[in-house]
Amino acid sequence: MTTKTPSKLEKILRDGHLAVTSECGPPRGSNIDHIVKKGELIKDHVDAINITDNQTSMTRLCSLAACIRLKLMGLEPVLQMVTRDRNRIALQSDILGAASFDINNILCLSGDHQSFGDCSQGQNVHDIDSIQLIQAVRHMRDEGKFLGGDELEGKPEMFVGAAANPFADPFEIRVPRLAKKIAAGVEFIQTQCIYNLDKFEEWMKGVRERGLHEKCFILAGLTPMKSVGMAKYMQKRVPGMDVPEEVIKRLQGVEKGKQADEGIKMCIESIQRLKECEGVAGFHVMAIEWEEKVPEIVEAAGLYPRPNGN
């Protein structure tokens, strides 16, 4: 199938393979070693690596610099970009900067509210929202123009993604919201961490009923639980996260030292189940500060070796 960009992730998806992506948070300081290390750790097991953009509003080294670093190592980064901190001038400018380093994937987000982070007294920008950012990137790429209408000298060749949270409210517009993102031009979706598989499958059913799975690639998001504590925290504290009681009970059912293993096992089982779900085009494995487990999960889930993407 023909691709629209030089993105390796796009190629793999269009070739009909189940894609695997993962993500890393940049360091809270200028020492970039650990991103390099994380990249090395998982590079053979994933097709692309998202770099988060000041996630949960904790100030970190910028996503763009970390993406460039991965690119220079020969890896395939996905530039996450939130509209919280940049207006349309800065967004366009950063997109061009990323494109100049042949970063070919972008994930358009609105971002967590700044009150969750270390600068809760700061302003937020929100000049445009995530859906408008999708439109903006597509406009730059396909029309070769700035939002202001001027011609670009060199278009950003980016495969455009966004997030979807099938578990947030109001549930009845969660499928329409995906349709809206597709209408805006999104090409791939990475979902919120899935723990409630029934609900996810219900959402996917709605997605299929409207044929939306044929209009974009949906990567199911998964995060292994490290402990009961983490599961409870996610259930109670993280807005828009759906952690069913069974997940907590199952982790509670094993002794403390084995909970992490159980979490990995559950993650692998989820992937196996969702491989059967029509419309799931791949997996986004977010092992938060636990990247060393990604290869194990990918292998056990039968997603290894990865296609070379050429």
């Binding site: 967590d112 929202d129 995530s130 979807a164 949270n165 947030a168 409210d169 807005p239 828009g240």
Partner: peptide, 19 residues
């Protein structure tokens, strides 16, 4: 809280804002 123009963010929970 994020002045979104095209729909709720992923943090909307049982009618309440993520903040």
């Amino acid at each position: 809280a994020k002045r979104l123009f095209n729909g709720p963010c992923g943090g909307s929970t049982t009618g309440k804002c993520e903040i």
